[in-house]
């Protein structure tokens, strides 16, 4: 006799695959689990990340399991899986979509939150945060600050305006004036 295996229904998000379809990953349900994505993945070659498994879990609605999986964050977004998928599924976009959901659930790495704080405060994800970079620019015959947000305080306000409107500050639980570089 074989014991019945029953997956606890309350843990299943039956709408996840539909949501992904609506979000533009419209071929995800056509996945045949061939594993081409896993085979193409340069990260999967050196880690436990299995792209096929992430996609399968998403399709089955194992929401919590996928969103809390640290392997979701070892994809470099190189796009090789998307190019090679025989069912033309945008696998990389699927991973990005799941990462968005993971962030909404609070699964965000502190380093990534720190990058986001920099974007909110300066408009650059990698800003000039040390005089040595301005000095280097000057030595090379460039203006000490580039003609980006760094030279236009009004432009930084525009970025902050966008971020407030999309709620990105709330998403990362940004605390104005109370952030330090150690986040």
């Amino acid at each position: 006799m074989i014991d019945r295996r029953i997956i606890n229904g309350s843990k299943i998000d039956s709408e996840l695959a539909d949501d992904m379809t609506k979000a533009g990953i419209d071929r995800i349900r056509s996945c045949i689990q061939c594993g081409t994505c896993t085979g193409a993945c340069p990260s999967g070659r050196r880690t436990a990340m299995r792209t096929r498994q992430l996609i399968r879990k998403a399709l089955l609605g194992f929401r919590e399991e996928v969103l809390s999986d640290p392997d979701l964050w070892v994809c470099t977004t190189c796009g090789t899986c998307t190019e090679r998928c025989p069912r033309k599924i945008d696998v990389t976009e699927a991973i990005l979509y799941l990462r968005n959901l993971a962030c909404q659930e609070g699964y965000m790495r502190p380093e990534h939150r720190a990058v986001s704080v920099k974007l909110i405060e300066t408009g650059h994800a990698v800003p000039i945060d040390d005089e040595k970079w301005s000095k280097m620019r000057e030595d090379l015959g460039l203006s000490p600050l580039p003609p980006t947000v760094h030279s236009y305080p009004k432009a930084v306000k525009e970025i902050q305006h966008i971020i407030k409107k999309t709620g990105f500050d709330k998403l990362i639980n940004y605390k104005e004036g109370k952030e330090d570089d150690k986040t």
Binding site: C103, S116, T148, V149, Y152, K154, L171
Partner: peptide
């Protein structure tokens, strides 16, 4: 003039499209 971070596809797009 006043251009910002693109923003980075691997990070910011990963967090909130």
């Amino acid at each position: 003039k006043g251009a910002s971070c693109c923003p980075a596809p691997g990070v910011i797009k990963s967090f909130d499209k």
